[in-house]
């Protein structure tokens, strides 16, 4: 059977776990947007004394892998402390699903971002977070590691297609080693814009393709 998805992905697509809203959630976060074609909202209930995630729910707008990754991260995070849950990566999500096709790996990145966003939302609410810090090249690089190169399903930093990154007066310039008319050029551009555009002190993101 030429199924593009693993049995586990299909199982979570057909019967997603922890779907819906938590009306009395302690924190929530939404990542992605309808325009991107994928969006996930994560709701958390956290025990104030132990910082343990006592309940978690998600909602997903997107393809089958988006729904399945949303479902799996709720299972992975439930019962963990927020510090433990923060350590979960998109690789953990993808592995727990028995793997994802390369072009769908970005879904697991989105789901993990949703989880981390909700945890951050909780920390902010509870005054557990530090002051706003100015964006550094290190932070940009860390975020670029969450942009997936759909050709291979690994991030663009690890696959060495990021040629140069500059940061000057709130303007980030990213140069990608790929022809501008490559099949996935527009997709990679959109993903970079999405990951960097939300940084509080970044005014503009420019992505250039060379190759």
């Amino acid at each position: 059977m030429p199924l593009p998805y693993s049995e586990i992905v299909m199982e979570h697509f057909k019967r997603p776990r922890n779907v819906g809203r938590l009306e009395d959630a302690d924190a929530k976060a939404t990542e992605g947007s309808p325009a991107c074609g994928d969006m996930v909202t994560v709701y958390l209930k956290v025990d104030e004394a132990t910082h343990r995630i006592t309940d978690i729910k998600f909602e997903s707008y997107g393809c089958a892998s988006n729904i399945a990754t949303g479902s799996i991260i709720t299972e992975l995070a439930k019962g963990k402390t927020i510090e433990e849950a923060k350590q979960l990566t998109w690789k953990d999500a993808a592995e727990a699903l028995g793997g994802l096709p390369p072009v769908k790996v970005h879904c697991s990145v989105l789901a993990i971002d949703g989880l981390r966003g909700a945890i951050q939302n909780y920390e902010e609410k509870k005054g557990l977070i530090k002051e706003k810090v100015p964006t550094t090249l290190e932070e940009i690089n860390r975020r670029l590691k969450r942009v997936v190169n759909p050709v291979v399903g690994l991030d663009i930093v690890r696959t060495k297609i990021v040629k140069e990154v500059t940061l000057e007066d709130g303007v980030v310039r990213v140069t990608i080693d790929m022809p501008a008319d490559h099949l996935f050029a527009n997709n990679i551009r959109d993903e970079i814009m999405e990951k960097l555009g939300t940084l509080w002190d970044i005014q503009r993101v420019e992505v250039e393709f060379v190759g």
Partner: peptide, 30 residues
């Protein structure tokens, strides 16, 4: 409020074959 590739897969599970304009379905993710 819902996305084409999910619809396509749900239809496929019921033995129905269609197409969608969703980015997830296209080869270029556009």
């Amino acid at each position: 409020f819902i996305e084409g590739e999910s619809i396509l897969l749900q239809l496929d599970m019921r033995g129905i074959a269609v197409s969608t304009g969703s980015a997830c379905f296209s080869r270029s993710l556009e």
